[in-house]
Amino acid sequence: MIIKDRSYPHPVLTPFRDDVHPNDFSLKLSVMPDADNYYLDVEFVYSNPTITNMVESERAVHCIHIECRRNYYREIFTSRAKTARLTIPATEMVGRVEVSGFVKASKTLSTYSIEGAHADYGDTTFHLQDGDPLAVAETYIFDAYVDYDPLKTVKSILNIRCSEEVVEGPMKIDTGDDNQIIVTLSKQDYRRYTDLKGNPSLGPLLANQVVVPAILEAVVEIRKTSEDEIELEMRKKWFRSITKKLEDSKIDPRSSEVSAFDAVQTILRLPLRRSLEGLYRLDPLDDAEQ
């Protein structure tokens, strides 16, 4: 449920309208996932004395409404306190989740009026029932995926394959798979790659020959994705993983403020330096003696 501007039959405290002044009413939310649960820390922020009094006198209650867009999960949590921690099993929600916060009447209020009501309301009082909203905050949206796989294990989102047809030719990168970025090497290159990667000093260099362009392609792909398509693309594990890694590195995945190449170097932790260090460790004399 996304709460937008609505016209209510009684004055409602909400940033969408000037029914009540000041119209400060918001929900602060932080979401922390682990393997089993989502932990939602919520805080209602407002100063209206009528709402405060209604909640304290148990005539109204804070509500958090959570709805998962891709399945049937839709729950409401209530609390007298302005802050709360909600724990939701990770198995309940997948994909885009809408979190709305409001205060609703929890019993019949026969002569309701609110401090700060717009002058147009005059001395009018209202008959409200259990369930009528008294204050409404803007809806917050987050994407629920607990399989974030930071790129420390790049191979979980990158699959390097040998081409079945091409004997000698360029490397191909496919970002169309739901789980992994598929890198296909020609038969000869794949043989060379597997032969050489056993050498621990060459490992970083070889990996980066494949990993850097693949992740670069992925970052560009994320940036190209329109706002409308983000939700759909988030079903891809690699898409989520790289998006999360960029966010963890304080890089806006959708902004081109930082160049795609700089972004890749940041999330792969300076791949060139690691490759060159590997080369430094190669001692030609060792090879000659073998």
Partner: peptide, 13 residues
């Protein structure tokens, strides 16, 4: 549901 919070209302209501 547009003007009232139906979720959580008692079954009787």
């Amino acid at each position: 549901g547009g003007v009232m919070i139906l979720d959580g209302l008692p079954a009787g209501t």
